[in-house]
Design a binder for these strands. Sequence first.
DNA 1: CACTTGACCTGTCCGC
DNA 2: TGCGGACAGGTCAAGT
Length: 284
Amino acid sequence: MPELPEVETIRRALAKELIGQIIEKVEVRAAKLFLGDKDKLIGQKITEVGRRGKILIFTLEHGYLAIHLKMTGQLIFVPKNKKVGVLIGGHPDKAYIETPPHRHTHIIFTFPAGVLYFNDLRKFGWAKVLSDEAALKKEVGHLGPEYDWPEFSLAYFQQMLTKKAKSRLKPVLMDQTNLAGIGNIYADESLFCAKVLPDWPAGSLNDREVRRLYQCIGQVFKLAIERGGTSSRDYRQPDGTRGTFLEIAKVYRRQNLPCRICRTLIKQVKLAGRSTHFCPNCQK
DNA sequence: CACTTGACCTGTCCGC
DNA sequence: TGCGGACAGGTCAAGT
């Protein structure tokens, strides 16, 4: 689930709590999710909390800790002497709150200031110890530029679409080697914003459309970060609260509801194996 | 090379 | 009420 805005929201919150903190203890309950030697983390201070695409990167005095939340991962921080309830396994309407650690808690990091819980219902996520710069590069080196880097210029975007001219737009946007951080939600929202259809060949856009899509990606990301991301069910901010982008999403999960712009019913189709939402009137 | 499908997991929801 | 199947934010590998 977590796409760039969710991971960025988590990064900002954890930076406040964890920079300068020393890792006192690491408890791995599900070995599958933890790659590397956990003992290398003990006693190390976190000097920075960064992000590359959808991957969180904790910089340590020696090496890094990288975390990918995949579909249902959560990082919940509970300050010492406090409790944070987290919704688990439920539709928002009949959700129930549970305080970690619970049955989906797989890794527990203990700091002087509190405890960080890595929960993941589906166990697709992972945490990885990276011993040095080279290991980090190997982990994130394949990723395309961030949307707010100078490298992600209009010229770069134009060139990228030309290179992938025959592929359909949405899969191109979601390919992390082209641009880091877009997933299913923000692909649909960006394409709606740009008024282009997800299954158009990437090479079929005119200059105006290319520029529009380029600007929309940044706009959508910024707005989503302001709203703390999209909580459709599992995603939570580190303090346990939900992100509110879904309330203002234009197309994602709005199939059969009227378009917020033109009232035409939003359609949902399957594209490249992913549910895809669009307005057949606005996007053309 | 580009695209599709299945796998990885657990849970929810829908139809019968 | 129970059961099978489809589906869910991501990414890989394998097949066509």
